[in-house]
Design a protein around this nucleic acid. Structure first.
Lengths: 384, 384
DNA sequence: GGCTTTACTTGACAAGGAGAACAAATAACC
DNA sequence: GGTTATTTGTTCTCCTTGTCAAGTAAAGCC
């Protein structure tokens, strides 16, 4: 259900939902503007918004007026972001991160738990702990989102395959849903991050864009025609092992010169640290070395940037997005390899296509968990 | 307008259109079945189909009964394919191919014209000639479709860029529309071919699939979430210059080892013919040589098949289609390089994704022009 | 101070589709 | 062989959704 408070519950129609989402994503808008965007009549908007305002889901924004215009001034409406609350949980191999957000995906609390082993009962227990820690009595949870690396889809909440957690065909969403008694949605972590960009980040206003992430691996999420691309049984955006050349470094799956072998942060660190025999170096140390012009680090990061550029070009050539967003735990490496990146991007972009617009999005530590929360939020607003 | 005959014109609602398209694409179906597929009530279907039947757009299929089932037997409905007529025109560098089809995309006439030069008036004149030659008085044209290589989109019929015809920002659709006085739609040729597969080919029943074509170039069309992917300003599916390795043959844009250099029919032919100093060999001669085990031809075709496998794997990894359809003027090369193709496909498919389903679709000579007709048909039924 | 422009509201009305009741045509069952 | 169950398709009533037209509100413009 939409509301968890006893009072003020509204029966939501599809049209009301679309108005609500439009206002949530595109900020305060006047009724007239929403009507134009959704191709509805102004009178429809009066009717659709009234119950939402009365129930407290929408607020008449009383903020500063815009620039003076001819005609009656508009009364912008906005979503009351505090009206609902979500918890997002990101599972990694050895740890769990969780955040609580409001409707606008603003983080209001965060926590984490080590995952001692991958036994389902253990993991389930830590998830429930985290959800309970983050829940506050005055803001009952509307939904829980869980994200992890691997092929998971919200559409079949009962099965999924997670390579590094060693699970297969596990009804995780169902188990969590039963344990915390709140609707629970499971999805792939990169797709969850893409959802954040789609509604609350760089993707806003674009009907198609791609997100490319760099970090422990290389990932890609796609939005095409305003819809998040899921791929058959949750497999899409698998650019990690894209072949860059057939002579480069080896990845752990035995591919020579794949994107992951060139540009993932462990590969970059290992490559530099072992070559110059300084095993204690961190990834950020390596970036600093490259920035200082150390020849080995410089070369490795140039190659990493070039690999990333080729990945972005390949994705753009195939899907033709309006924009490519670059993010992930190690996006800041962009500062050290921007030139190699853009050179490779231009070289591999198909000559009949226009230049690819790239936006670099700094990555916050809890972004993965936030993505899970947004997945839950989107699912609740679109499919229920 | 929907109908061009003076009698029997209906005002089409969106619901009627969706019923019509469902019946056109998914063959004869009972009202009850259509209701289930479109999540409508049975009563709605009675209402929606009656005017369509009366106007002659739908027929009550009186064919053979299906297997006996419990309950009242259904009365399957089907589209009267002859009710509308379309002309599709494919433009190449030196020739124009045109077909006339009915609603079911069955070809009822074809013609061609050499294109002496790329002057717009000359090309326009040949198009109008072809359209007039194919039009029969008893079947007035509903729409004309034009397809060519290059970045064109139906959404902006006024501008497009065609590399090899040397045009840029030319309002071709508008000019043709004015000359033949029939709604005219312009689109990229590979996308047009994808449209054929989507409604009348291997793609039927799949909400997402990819089409990969081999011929003078390597192309790719995508359907994701039941919608043909257009890409920003018509640029998508540009896999022709995808890098296979960085040591292989050169393409005409100076890329070493790109897909086109390995697997396009001119590249394959040139590679074999020049190496064994037999410049008179045709592409099909080369295939025959390879089939006979000639070492040079064998090697070139193995490499071509491998390149194609890598292209398909890359597209599948990124977009996660339910199916990949292989087609194009030189698909028959598949017979000679299937093993190399599947080996490379498996090697490059991401290890967390399931195996890629591939369907090889034999290519008819007039398929490109048929694609243009289907583009016109889709546009008329979906956007008008 | 009218006039224009834009935003919003109100109430009448039309269309689209659901639901219930019913007729039709078959297989399954006793 | 008649009854029952099952599925298809139709008819009719009613409700929901949203448009249209008219009117009100609140500003800037001349």
């Amino acid at each position: 259900m939409f509301s968890h408070t006893a009072t003020d519950h509204v029966r939501l129609t599809d049209a009301m939902r679309s108005v609500f989402v439009e206002l949530l994503v595109h900020g305060p808008l006047s009724r007239a503007e929403v009507a134009r965007r959704l191709t509805l009549s102004p009178s429809a908007l009066t009717k659709l918004t009234r119950p939402l305002i009365e129930a407290g889901y929408l607020l008449e924004a009383t903020g500063e007026e815009g620039p003076a215009t001819v005609g009656r001034p508009s009364q912008p409406l906005q979503v009351d972001a505090s009206r609902m609350s979500f918890v997002g949980v990101k599972l990694t191999e050895d740890e769990l991160f969780a955040v609580r957000t409001d409707l606008a995906a603003t983080v209001h609390g965060e926590t984490s738990r080590p995952l001692a082993d991958h036994d389902i009962d253990h993991v389930l227990g830590r998830i429930v702990e985290a959800v309970e820690e983050l829940t506050v009595p005055e803001r009952p949870l509307s939904a829980v989102g869980i994200s992890l690396a691997g092929t998971a889809t919200p559409s079949d909440p009962v099965v999924h395959t997670s390579p590094f957690l060693g699970w297969s065909q596990l009804p995780l969403a169902e188990l969590v849903e039963r344990a915390v008694n709140v609707p629970t949605v499971l999805d792939n972590d990169v797709r969850a991050l893409t959802a954040v960009q789609q509604w609350f980040g760089e993707g806003v206003g674009h009907s198609s864009f791609a997100l490319v992430t760099v970090g422990a691996g290389i990932g890609c999420g796609l939005v095409i025609g305003d819809r998040l691309v899921t791929g058959q049984s949750g497999a899409s955006g698998l650019v990690g092992h894209l072949q860059i050349d057939d002579r480069g470094p080896l990845c752990e799956r035995g591919h020579r010169g794949c994107a992951r072998a060139y540009a993932s942060s462990p590969s970059i660190r290992r490559s530099i640290a072992t070559t110059i025999a300084r095993p204690e170096l961190t990834f950020d140390d390596c970036l600093a070395l490259a920035a200082d012009g150390h020849p080995v680090a410089r070369r490795v990061l140039d190659e990493a940037g070039a690999a990333l550029g080729q990945v972005v070009a390949t994705v753009a050539n195939i899907t033709g997005p309006e924009l490519v967003v670059l993010s992930g735990e190690s996006v800041h490496m962009y500062d050290v390899c921007a030139q190699a990146f853009h050179t490779a991007l231009a070289a591999h972009t198909h000559w009949t296509a226009g230049p690819v617009r790239v936006a670099v999005k700094p990555f916050a530590f809890n972004e993965w968990a936030r993505g899970a929360a947004v997945t839950a939020l989107q699912h609740l607003l679109l499919h229920r």
